[in-house]
Simulated scan of single mutants.
Amino acid sequence: MTVEQCWQPVPGGSGSYIAELTRALADDPTVDVVGIAARHGDDEVPRPAPTGRVVRAPLPRLALYEAWSRLRRPRAESLTGPLDVVHATTWAIPGRKVPLVVTVHDLAFLREPDHFTARGNAFFRRAVEIVRAEAAQVVVPSGTTRDDCVAHGFAAEQITVVPHGVRAAEVGAADVTGWRRRSGVDRPYVLWCGTLEPRKNVVRLVEAFAAARAGGQLEHDLVLVGPDGWGETSRDVERALAVLPAGSVHLLGRLDDADLQVAYAGADAFAFPSLWEGFGMPVLEAMAHGVPVVTSAGSSMAEFAGDVGVLVDPLDVDEIAAGLVAAVGHDDADGLRARAAQFTWAASATAHAEVYRSAAG
């Protein structure tokens, strides 16, 4: 299984997926997972970290990815020894002789190529060709991504939908109080978290928040959590924030997992009107804490948020603003937690193991 994503500066949802899946698969005696990563120094620590044995390729990340993409070398078996199946958990797909399983998180780069770098687009498109030519099985996290794959030429019978799970830490009132004090977040707040990049739609969220506050319908602060991604997004967000009262927005950067769990638990609402997601893990994490969610209608998030979430048109600032107002007044913590509890990493791992057996068989 490829686990290199966990060493990326911004591992994102793919890194969480790898860490949680390897942890859950470690409890399955029928599956022996060996991780494959690039060459790293001893001081380079993966966050989050995969569970189990990891072998290192002799090449650093960029060289390894290009070699896999263009040459289909080094083969996975040359690094790990004998294998029954190879699971590429991202678009970095090793060459190999045994059957191949690939997780396709989304095809956002085909839908909105302007939201990605030219180099990234070229790499992803080559990977799509490899998947179509070589993959025995394709795993996707949502029906939305499955439909997108079929629309772009993947064979429907090749694809299995395996939703992600969620793991929410227990958070007490004292934890929230301490985090608020350390972070300077004194007032009730609406939370967003993710990587600042164009498809996350943060500028429209900020504009909607400003409109709701200006109309006197919302008295909350806005808390934005996560690292910068690429493009002009962070500057665009800063320009949008300029119209808001001082102190009403908190840009907290990347939080560690423990603080992020507390930030979820302390929020009055979680807003995530992304333009496109393969799954939308932050929405499910917020729901697991019983926090009302605002997210995009017709998206992968709508598949699990359904009737317990507030669904909005992510291109309509007024509709997002109305959704924020509705969410902070929403009180169905038990329903939100119950819905999130249907999604477990144990169930996801069991389904992945079935895909491995099908590919190998």
Rank of each mutant, 00 (worst) to 15 (best):
A151W: 06
G120E: 08
A305Q: 05
L205N: 00
D268E: 15
A338P: 04
F272W: 09
F209K: 03
V325G: 07
G12W: 10
F279N: 10
V55T: 03
A351S: 08
L191Q: 03
V243N: 03
G229Q: 13
F279A: 06
V104W: 02
G309A: 11
E44M: 15
Y17G: 05
G95N: 02
S274E: 01
L255C: 04
D259W: 08
A359N: 08
A265C: 06
E44T: 12
A19K: 13
D84V: 12
S248I: 14
V54C: 10
V140F: 07
G298Q: 06
E112W: 14
T233S: 13
V3T: 10
H330Y: 15
P58A: 01
G178T: 12
A127H: 04
A108W: 07
V262M: 13
R180A: 02
V171T: 00
C6R: 13
V102W: 14
V262T: 15
R180S: 02
T90Y: 15
R96F: 01
L241P: 13
A169Y: 07
A151K: 03
A359G: 05
G335E: 01
M301C: 15
D316Y: 10
E4P: 00
A108M: 10
F304M: 14
P74I: 08
P29N: 14
A212N: 05
A321M: 00
R75D: 04
E66I: 10
D32Q: 12
T30Y: 15
L252A: 03
V98M: 14
S183Q: 14
V283Q: 03
T295S: 02
A349T: 04
G153P: 11
L275M: 13
T195L: 08
A297T: 12
R125F: 05
H289K: 04
F109V: 14
T22M: 14
L25M: 10
A327G: 02
F272E: 04
I18V: 15
W276P: 00
G306R: 13
P282E: 00
S78V: 01
H250C: 07
A321P: 11
P163F: 10
F270I: 01
A173K: 09
L64A: 03
V203E: 03
G247N: 03
V85L: 11
S248R: 15
V203W: 00
R39Y: 04
D84Y: 13
R96G: 02
A67M: 06
A338F: 05
V293G: 04
E238N: 11
L251I: 06
V308F: 15
T103M: 13
E303W: 12
W276M: 12
W7E: 05
